[in-house]
């Protein structure tokens, strides 16, 4: 496949997802509101644990924790969950193979929906949390925030592609994928700075790639010094983001070529 054909396909896929987001605008708006409501339910519960005088200090950390988690979990859900529930169920996998288009390219385009959804959800969460706390400062250095979020999205895209490819073989439903998201949120250094976690959990957090990008993000937001130092965390975030994305794409190609094109896909069976 020549470069021009690749560029043509990429353009078509970006157009497809932008069009889908517009065409299914009510589903898209509903999804953003849905996220905001879930996050608010948990934040209102969690706030009852805190002393009122501590709220202005911890609110920005909570805000970026849930914003980063929302972005990561929606990237995974929009890619891996969508594959099993929508692509396979509606028979679109074979359709794309017939047009010689890799599913991984198609799925990567879902980032268009993720970005739009995240912008709306993050704005709504800010509105809710700042009205509960009474205003908060959330951005000290936007460059680090953007870098941290981009690295997290690259990691989540790689992880989502791996789960999606695995789902084509095992019919793993999207709901199961959420399990790891919950775990990662608490012990993966997304909800709180790694320094705040109990000592054994810090080791777990360091192993989970998201924690490094989250540390960079928090530095950009409220100047909390990253656990392993700013330089190392920035480098690790970039390396891990690029590494996970490459691994996701390579694994997808392997599953497509060695399994799906030979045996077909497994959907979620009822009978």
């Amino acid at each position: 496949m020549g470069l021009s054909e690749k560029a043509y396909k990429l353009k078509a896929i970006l157009y497809l997802h932008a069009l889908r987001t517009w065409r299914y605008k009510y589903s898209f708006i509903n999804s953003s509101i849905n996220t905001m409501l879930w996050v608010t339910i948990f934040l209102l519960g969690a706030i009852l644990f805190a002393k009122p005088e501590d709220l202005p200090r911890i609110a920005p950390v909570m805000f970026w924790g849930v914003s980063a988690w929302n972005t990561v979990s929606y990237t995974v859900l929009f890619i891996a969950g969508w594959t099993t529930w929508f692509l396979v169920t509606t028979g679109l996998v074979e359709e794309h193979f017939l047009h010689n288009t890799s599913l991984s390219t198609l799925l990567s385009g879902r980032l268009v929906s993720v970005v739009f959804e995240s912008i709306i959800a993050i704005a709504l969460v800010y509105f809710v949390l700042s009205s509960v706390v009474g205003g908060m400062d959330i951005a000290d250095n936007p460059l680090f925030i953007a870098y941290g979020l981009m690295c997290m999205i690259a990691m989540a895209l790689g992880y989502g592609l791996i789960l999606s490819a695995t789902g084509l073989r095992l019919s793993i439903p999207g709901t199961l994928l959420d399990i790891s998201n919950f775990v990662v949120f608490i012990v993966g250094g997304i909800a709180t700075p790694v320094e705040m976690l109990p000592r054994p959990l810090r080791l777990v957090a360091i192993v989970i790639p998201y924690s490094h990008a989250a540390e960079v993000l928090r530095y950009g937001a409220v100047r909390i010094e990253p656990y392993l130092g700013l330089g190392l965390e920035v480098a690790l975030s970039g390396i891990l983001g690029a590494g996970m994305l490459t691994a996701g794409l390579l694994y997808y190609k392997y599953v497509e070529d060695r399994y799906v094109r030979i045996h077909g896909v497994k959907g979620i069976g009822r009978m």
């Binding site: 519960g45 969690a46 009852l48 805190a50 501590d54 909570m62 909800a191 705040m196 976690l197």
Partner: peptide, 9 residues
């Protein structure tokens, strides 16, 4: 919820 609660309060 408990994870957030224990970490923040």
């Amino acid at each position: 919820l408990l994870g957030l609660g224990y970490l923040f309060g």
